[in-house]
Simulated scan of single mutants.
Amino acid sequence: MENKSKSVELIEYSTLDFESQQQFDAFSQAAAPICDLKKPHSFNSGFRAKFSAFDLGGIDIIDWEVDPTNSERTNDQIKKTDLDNWAIWFVRSGCFYNEYNDRSVKAKTGDLMLVSHARPWKSRWEGQSFVSVGLDRDKFSWMAPSLDEANLSVLNGSLTGLLRTFISTLVDEAHKISEDQKQILSRSFSDLLAVSLDPTADNLRNATPALNASRLTIAREFIRKNLARPELNVDFICKSLGTSRRTLYSVFEEHGGVAKYIKTVRLQACYKALSDAADLRFVSTIAYQYGFTNMSLFSRQFKDQYGFSPKEAHDCRTADHVRLNTSSPTLLDHLCRSTSCIAPASDGANLTAPSLPEASTREYDEATMSKTTA
């Protein structure tokens, strides 16, 4: 998709720009409008903290990597600043603890915790990777009762996984977002958050584009990571991701169907390997690697796709037979095209991101597409 306007501004910050003895104090000063930081007991000389932030118009998204520390938002800070928004904390790795009065809540890897900055709190970060989504109180006043009710709680429900996928994709594709797309993405996130908190029929209808874009993101990633499995088909995907055939067919409609998408991705993976001069494997080995068990069928499908046989691609790997377009439409593509607005499945089934183990970022990424949601 070609963006005709400039990309959104990404604000970068890192304590590594300071001398090691100044790093904690520098980060404390940067965080001062929001909270007070307490120097961790394990602190010796350096303190690693960095973030990348961008604005979607009333929605501030910040991708953090921070050493473990404690923080506190006091009543004095609330009085001195006009920051009274809500924040969704998405824990990508580690743990996040929050306390208010006698209430203590823990968010582990993969969880989403909602926190109101209009109230005091104490928190402890034990991990390295978080995403915070700041919600302007004026922009989200229409769902204020639901947000206030969910304060200091871990969000759950069948649609929370799709909200998590949406946030992850926004962060991963931030450099692709144009100014023209901000309004669409802001509205899509708002609709998705609303249906996650209150899954009414109206909210489901409004959130359909965002829901289906997130479903497709999850399914495509699952397919990519399971190409080697011969049993990769509609039934296997539905069972693994806990969705219905109707829902899966719906989100892959614009790709010509699930089976066609799987075949295309497999053939692209084989072509890439066969044309790689550094890959010395046999044609049959590469075919089996990407889920083809019938060599005659593989050769026929490969030639139909590219106009020459797998052996020709393997023998003439230095030749540029065909220029592959291996890029897939992104979440941004689906949200910014009217064709993404397809009706939700009437059976109410949801293609949801799975429950997550306490794991490192890499383990979390691998687990995201391989387990079903509880």
Rank of each mutant, 00 (worst) to 15 (best):
S284R: 11
D235E: 03
F222R: 02
H175S: 09
T69F: 12
S20D: 13
N85G: 15
F252T: 01
P120R: 07
D333S: 09
D148A: 13
S327T: 03
A201D: 11
G58H: 01
T373D: 12
A259Y: 01
A228N: 10
L83P: 07
V171E: 03
K106I: 10
D136L: 04
I286M: 04
R281Y: 02
S123E: 09
K311Y: 02
S190H: 08
K108P: 08
L170W: 04
L10C: 02
S190D: 06
H117Y: 15
S188K: 08
T368Q: 13
D82M: 13
D172M: 09
Y288H: 13
C336M: 01
F140S: 06
S141G: 04
R119H: 04
I11V: 05
K38A: 08
L135Y: 03
S346L: 07
Y364R: 15
L10K: 10
P33Q: 06
K108V: 11
G127W: 03
Q29N: 12
F47C: 04
E173W: 00
W89I: 10
V195F: 05
I62N: 10
E126N: 12
E253N: 14
D276R: 10
H255F: 01
F222G: 02
A277K: 15
E173D: 09
S196H: 05
E254L: 09
D25I: 08
A287S: 06
D333W: 00
S328D: 04
L163T: 10
R164N: 09
Q77S: 14
V115I: 15
N3R: 12
R92G: 08
L170A: 05
G257K: 08
G348D: 14
K39E: 08
F282Y: 04
R229F: 00
L197R: 00
H117R: 15
R224I: 01
R323H: 07
K79M: 14
S123Y: 05
E65L: 03
R48P: 00
S45A: 10
F18W: 05
D82V: 10
R92E: 13
R266E: 01
W89Q: 04
F96Y: 11
S296N: 14
V154R: 15
F166L: 07
